[in-house]
Structure formats: structure tokens, C-alpha cells
Write a protein that binds this DNA or RNA. Sequence first.
DNA 1: TAGATTGTTAATCGATTAACAATC
DNA 2: TAGATTGTTAATCGATTAACAATC
Lengths: 216, 216
Amino acid sequence: MADFDYIPQATVYRLSLYHCYIGEMIRAGEDEKNVTSRVLADELDIREETVRRDLSYIGGVGRRGVGYSMGTLFEALSEFLGLYDEYPIVRVGSAQMLRALEVVFPPDAYGVRPVAYFSEQPEDVGTVIGELEVRHVTEIPQHDKDLDVRVALVACSQPWIDPVLEMLSEAGINGVLLLTPKVKLDRPEGMNVRHVRMPCDIKSLACGCKIPVAAV
Amino acid sequence: MADFDYIPQATVYRLSLYHCYIGEMIRAGEDEKNVTSRVLADELDIREETVRRDLSYIGGVGRRGVGYSMGTLFEALSEFLGLYDEYPIVRVGSAQMLRALEVVFPPDAYGVRPVAYFSEQPEDVGTVIGELEVRHVTEIPQHDKDLDVRVALVACSQPWIDPVLEMLSEAGINGVLLLTPKVKLDRPEGMNVRHVRMPCDIKSLACGCKIPVAAV
DNA sequence: TAGATTGTTAATCGATTAACAATC
DNA sequence: TAGATTGTTAATCGATTAACAATC
């Protein structure tokens, strides 16, 4: 088995994409079936060589001539990515945003589970969303570390971004998916922020560029 | 001046990031000032060589020994990206989501302007959000083409994604920023979709990988 | 055995970084 | 002129693709 010094960021992302896909298949009862790199590639709009290369970082998970067993692959992906069923996350945003996100990104369909909701708006405190009581963002540092949460989804209003990131960091959460746009981010030491900048995405999608854009 | 055959996707994205940054500076009244590649790089967490290379795709916009004039650069970026002030966009999602997005991504702060709101929920029809009346998604094909909208922000519930993309395509909109997760996307011919997959981002952020992740 | 599919090594491609000449 | 900063060419780096041997 090959031994790698490092793994590309893009590969980690695709591994989690395979995890989502296989998870969905398994929930649909396809547990026992096999899947090949070709099928995965076709379904997810990737090249099959890329799929094989990606999965080879995990190592020893496929069978030549046969493919990958759904169950085994799912376990291996979970282990490699450090995931487990009902992976706990925290969500930060107004009650309105939290409720809207509940619809758009229903956590149980993806194997994650929100264990705390925080809003920046005082009047949201006490509102119940999906059996969880919304607390104020200033309570983030008192967040129970035993819940072992590593990742937060943040969609608060702009002025709260920096203090919220700081408080999350204090609470031991160092992975953040941030939906609120902000040009210049003040990222706490050691925090891994995946920033979705909607205005930039909109503007680059608009691009009626003078020069053709390179294929991806 | 160099002549390029194509421009990297990543460069287009960063150009729009510079556009956001300079736009913010100009609104703050820094119109007359100059900015250097070093300053841009420091502010936006990029390397200065990258900034210069990016801007060289536009061509003839900087002055050696001086830097880039905010006003000129903004104009050049707008022209190159095909943007203009109050760039029109469409937003699709429940009234709740649309209202929540209004707070998180206030369009006027970024030079874009929503010209139509569509919801997949019949009971949302007629609700007024920011002076715009929400219409039902099935009305998308009747969208007024004179408004010359090219880009949509979509955050509807999962079952509506495919029909909505199809209808947007019919309405002549071929750039979509999609916030709703879905493993397998059915993308209409010629449509450019930037898909934010929150579950995948969450999972890759969680990554307590066995192998170190490559630096970006 | 024949057919299928993985996993790895080598080749290619594309983007970023370094270096520096041009010039304000 | 001296100092600063751009813009371009060359070098590096990293990821993807191609090819194919291994093996189920």
C-alpha cells in the first residue's frame, strides 16, 4: 500500500462527498451492494481515475475486479474523516435563519446533529427549534465541552462575526463554515474557516469575461 | 501587454474579491487614494505576486512605482467582470429564508440588487420583503427578460431544486449560486452552478485525518 | 481461465511563486 | 536620480489524468 505524506484539500472534500453519497445509498437500503469507481464518478461528475486516487489515500478498501462494498467503504470513510453517526455540530444565527436552515439542510438526512443553537438577537433567546432552546451567542464560551463539538455552521449578522469566531475558538470549536459575507476576516489562531462569500460567488458567476474562463 | 488565451477560475473569483474590497473602500470615501498589490494582499490574505498576476489579466490598470488607483481599478474590474452598480439578481427560497438572507447578505452593501423573489411555498405568495412581492416559483418562466438578470441565489427546499434550475434556465438565467445540499445535481445544459454543499464542508472541516492535509 | 476493476507509477496539465527588468 | 512598485518571463509546485500491472 502506498504511503502518502499529505492529502490534498480537494481530496478531503471529495471523500466527504463520497461519504454523503454512500450514506444516502445505505439509508435507501443498498447496504450490501458494491459500487465501482466508474459508478461513483458518473453519479458525482468526477473522473473515475480521480475517485480511485482519492480512495487510495484510505487504503485497502476496494477489491480488484469487484469494486467497493458500500458498508465497508462507508465505515472506512467515517473512520478516516473522523466522523460518526449523528456527528454533533453547533449552529449560530437568528432564530429565523436557524429555522430556515433546518428546512434547507435537514441534519438527520446527512448524518449530523445540531446540539446547540445560538442567536445574536436577544429576543430569540428561549425560542425552541427542533427540540433545542436557542441561547444567546454570548453564552458560547460556556458551551459544554463534553459534547465534543468540533464544527460550527455560522450565519449571524456581520457585526457579530468576529466576536462569534473568537468565542467559538474559546469553546474549543476550530472548524467553521461561515455563510455571512465579510471582506476582511479576523480569524482566530488555529481556526479553520471555510468562508462562503456569496457576493464574490455572484460576481464571478456574472462574469461575462473578455477572456474565456479555464475549464475546471 | 500580455495576451492570455484563458483566465483561471480562481483568478476570476479573486477579481470579484478585489471588487468587493475596493467597493467597500470607495463607499468609505477612499475613492481618490491608491492601493498597492502589497496592501491588497495583506488585507485579503493572498500573496502579492498573485494579486499582480491576477490584475495583469485586466491589463494596463496599474502604475509602476505608484500602485492602482481605487477609482480606476474599480471601473476596470466592473467592466471586466461585466458588473454594474446595483447588479440585478433573483433570489429563490421560502419567505423565511429570503428574510433571513436579507440580514446576512444585505445586497446594497455589495452592489447587487434583488429584482425578484420566488418561494416554493404557496402561502408565501404576496408577502412583501424589502419592497418586493414574493411570487411562486412556478412563475419563474414568466420572469421579465427585460430586467436582464443573469444570476440567481437559490436556497429552496431539496425537492424543488431540479425544477427550479430548469425554470431559471428557461428564464434565461444561467448562473446559479445554490445553497441547498443535494448529492446528485441535474444541471441544465449551459448552466453554471456554484454549489455550496454544507454537509460536505462540515465533514471536511471535521477531518481529524490520519494524513496531514496539504497547505493551500 | 477470461473479464473486470483496483491501485500505483509516470506523464501531463495548470496554477502559483520567484525573480527581475521596465518604468513611474 | 533614487526609491517604489508594476508586469512579465521562468521556475516551482501540486493536483489531475493516463496508462497499465496486479489481482480478485
